[in-house]
Computed example of a mutant assay.
Amino acid sequence: MELTNERKLKSELQLKKLGIPINENLPLTELDSDVNVRTKEEIIDRIIALTIVSAKGMGASNGEIDEFIEVFKAFDLFTDEEKIFIEKKSPKQREFIQYSWKIECIWVLLWSINIIQELGIPTNTCDVDLVYETVLSSTKEDLIKKTSLRGTNEILDSLDFTYRSHWADRDAQLNGSQIPSNFNEGVIYERHYTFNWLVNYMEEEWDAVSTDT
């Protein structure tokens, strides 16, 4: 319990320095020993799938998507909802927007396997070109060989900060106020979603991950 309380206090101090409101009554995150982080192979499979669906979300042609799927032998890596999107010849605009945001999830997952060194504060969207260059110029085997999984403690530290940031964002929305530091609500949401999947929060699979605050 002391470790999780220390993590909470650390996150709250970071948020205070940024001028972000905190809620001292939010619960503690789990102990490191109680968390079952996804394996490196699971994470890389998810990176590949998300890279392809986000590329379609950002306007890649159906031919390009088919090529990516073939190169990575990726069709079995998609969730049920992702398969529906991938197979649509003319998705709706809201679907393009929804899946284009998944680039932010890939950023977190690349960080979790030590390709991205710093997540940064969730104010700006990630480096899209770097994400696509990193993944699409590699094979699955390349990614497995050149990466290592971050420690559970570091992952939970970032999850805790993101979780408390997400509360501040939602609280501001409810009260019609603006969050200081120009936090990006889309970035915060996608990060929280991804971290909860990473740590098997409530044992939920990708299409069903919740982001309670």
Rank of each mutant, 00 (worst) to 15 (best):
G176P: 07
S148D: 11
S210T: 15
V131L: 07
N25I: 11
S54G: 04
M58S: 08
T123K: 15
K102A: 04
L110S: 00
E41Y: 10
Q93H: 13
I47E: 01
T211Y: 05
E67M: 12
I43S: 01
I69E: 03
S210H: 15
F78H: 01
F96R: 04
K102T: 11
T211M: 09
W206D: 02
Y163S: 08
L9M: 13
S138H: 07
E205F: 11
D142E: 06
L110P: 01
K8A: 00
P91C: 03
N182W: 09
I84A: 09
V128I: 11
K83D: 02
I179T: 07
A168P: 05
I113W: 01
N114A: 15
R46P: 00
L130S: 15
E141P: 00
K88Q: 14
Q14E: 13
S11N: 09
F195T: 03
F161Q: 00
T125E: 11
W167K: 04
E42Y: 02
L130N: 15
D66S: 15
E42K: 05
H192C: 07
E87R: 14
L143M: 06
S33D: 11
L13N: 13
V187H: 02
K146T: 08
M58R: 13
I20P: 00
K10M: 08
N25L: 12
T123P: 03
I43R: 02
F68T: 02
L136A: 03
K73N: 13
R170E: 09
E104M: 06
L26A: 02
F195Y: 09
E133K: 12
E81R: 11
D80W: 08
K73C: 08
V53T: 10
M58L: 13
W101S: 05
N25D: 14
K8N: 04
I188D: 01
F75N: 08
E104R: 07
D212L: 06
N5D: 10
Y193A: 01
L110K: 01
S90R: 14
R7A: 06
N182L: 12
T139P: 06
I69R: 06
K73H: 14
T139C: 09
I22Y: 06
S165L: 15
S54Q: 02
E133P: 01
S138P: 02
Q173N: 08
Y193G: 00
L174M: 11
L9A: 12
